[in-house]
Design a protein around this nucleic acid. Structure first.
Lengths: 165, 165
DNA sequence: ACTGAAAGACACAGACT
DNA sequence: AGTCTGTGTCTTTCAGT
């Protein structure tokens, strides 16, 4: 089992899932490396339909990716920062250029378009405060059309789960 | 390959990883279902050491979990909300009770202790605005010792990656 | 620490109900 | 829709370097 998930880009299309799909999905959210055989034992179906249902959820983009989740505190990325950004101008091109520059910054592991005072929320991981300062001053602040930036530091992780359905 | 990752709870202990470990980790962050054989081809080692290195990273808590990442927009959880919460009192017991109640709310998929004006940041997924309103009024706001709540709505996902090292 | 081999388990496709 | 069966591939362990 080695292939990457390929996302079909019919953006935002709802996919109908029955109870068995949801059971399978929950198991995969908890443990992406569970075997099809184990799923089939728990869901009371043989392996073939499990296979087909997983393949369908991969192809329709319900399953975006299988990922190993890393404890950043243990691998020299101890600092997580929530970063709010507003742009000076809000035309389409300005936004697109900012997004493009964000996609190229490996420190930024999440970015959302948000409502309210700011335009974007970023989740940034860095080795330490010096590294974050460098990112802030030399990378993020160099993005053209940047307005205001506000940084909020994560002091502790209370909860991080994937099971959402 | 079916076992869950077991986290050793020597909280926050740094784990030393060499370049080969990091290569393996990057591959697993991109695709948790990659085969050991494929990793061994890319990292130029045979399967045995790959196995041992992965097992070590699982046992030391570097790899927290293998997870299928779901596109919430496609599975009737179209609304993501960033939610800031402050408490009235900041003693240890009050915080612990709030955390306990958060851990019991399936709508809350992430929760962080943060610096600044608010005490916690939550990421909440809901089916729609009605469902979020219900969560806000009937669940979150019922938590004892709750001060202020501010909701920021996610209008679009720009980036969500796992590769952080 | 690593290589190579070998046994058992698994994924995945095919024929069938 | 699903079960059953088979083949090739993978995981995982172990002896050896």
């Amino acid at each position: 089992m080695a292939k990457q998930v390929k996302k079909e880009d019919s953006a935002g299309t709802q996919v109908m899932l029955d109870d068995k799909d949801l059971s399978i999905l929950r198991l995969l959210q908890q443990n992406a490396r569970i075997t099809v055989k184990e799923i089939s034992d728990k869901v009371h179906l043989s392996t073939t339909p499990i296979h087909e249902r997983i393949r369908r959820m991969e192809e329709t983009g319900v399953i975006r990716q299988y990922a190993a989740l890393v404890d950043h505190a243990r691998v020299k990325k101890g600092l997580t920062v929530i970063c709010y950004v507003s742009l000076k101008q809000h035309n389409r091109n300005a936004g697109a250029r900012f997004i493009k520059s964000i996609l190229d910054m490996p420190e930024v592991i999440e970015c959302y378009n948000i409502s309210g005072e700011f335009d974007f929320m970023l989740k940034v991981v860095a080795e330490n405060m010096d590294a974050y300062y460098d990112f802030h001053v030399n990378k993020l602040s160099q993005a053209e059309n940047l307005g205001h930036v506000q940084s909020i530091f994560v002091m502790g992780v209370i909860k991080q789960v994937q099971v959402s359905i």
